[in-house]
Simulated assay, not measured.
Amino acid sequence: MGTTLFVPNATIHLHRDDLPPGLSLGPVVAIDTETMGLNPHRDRLCLVQLSSGDGAAHCVQIRPAHLGGPARRGGFVDCPNLRAMLADPGTVKLFHFARFDVAILHKELGVTVAPVRCTKVAAKLVRTFTDRHGLKELCRELLGVEISKQQQTSDWGAPELSSEQLAYAASDVLHLHALWEKLEGLLRREGRFDLAEACFRFLPTRGALDLLGYAEPDIFSH
Rank of each mutant, 00 (worst) to 15 (best):
D17W: 02
L138F: 09
E197M: 15
V48Q: 13
D88P: 02
R117N: 06
S154F: 00
H41S: 12
S51V: 02
D32P: 12
K93N: 01
L161I: 13
Y214E: 10
L209A: 13
F76M: 08
G134C: 08
T35F: 03
R192N: 09
G68T: 07
P21K: 05
G134I: 01
G53R: 12
F100I: 03
V145W: 00
L211N: 15
D78T: 06
V126E: 02
N39I: 12
G22H: 08
M85V: 04
G207P: 15
E108Y: 11
S24K: 11
H177G: 14
G75W: 04
Y214P: 14
G37L: 09
E137V: 02
T153L: 15
E146K: 09
A71L: 10
K182N: 06
Q151M: 15
L38Y: 01
L38S: 01
S52C: 08
K93M: 06
N81A: 10
G191R: 04
S171K: 03
L105E: 00
V145M: 06
F76N: 01
L183Q: 14
Q49T: 00
Q165H: 03
G144K: 09
L138N: 05
L212R: 14
L5I: 15
P40Y: 01
L187C: 13
D18F: 09
W156I: 05
A167N: 04
H15T: 08
S24C: 11
V116K: 07
K182E: 15
S148E: 13
P27R: 09
G134N: 10
L94V: 05
A167L: 02
L14V: 15
R192V: 14
S171I: 03
V111Y: 07
T130H: 14
P115F: 05
D172A: 08
F200D: 04
L86Q: 02
Q61N: 06
A87H: 05
G134W: 07
E216W: 13
H96S: 06
L14C: 08
P159F: 00
L209Y: 10
K93H: 03
R42P: 00
S51A: 06
D43T: 09
T11G: 14
E108V: 07
L183C: 06
F202T: 03
K136S: 02
R189F: 10
R206P: 00
Q49D: 07
L183P: 12
D18M: 05
E184G: 00
S171M: 05
H175N: 12
I62G: 03
K107T: 01
L25A: 13
L186P: 06
S52D: 15
A71I: 14
P159G: 09
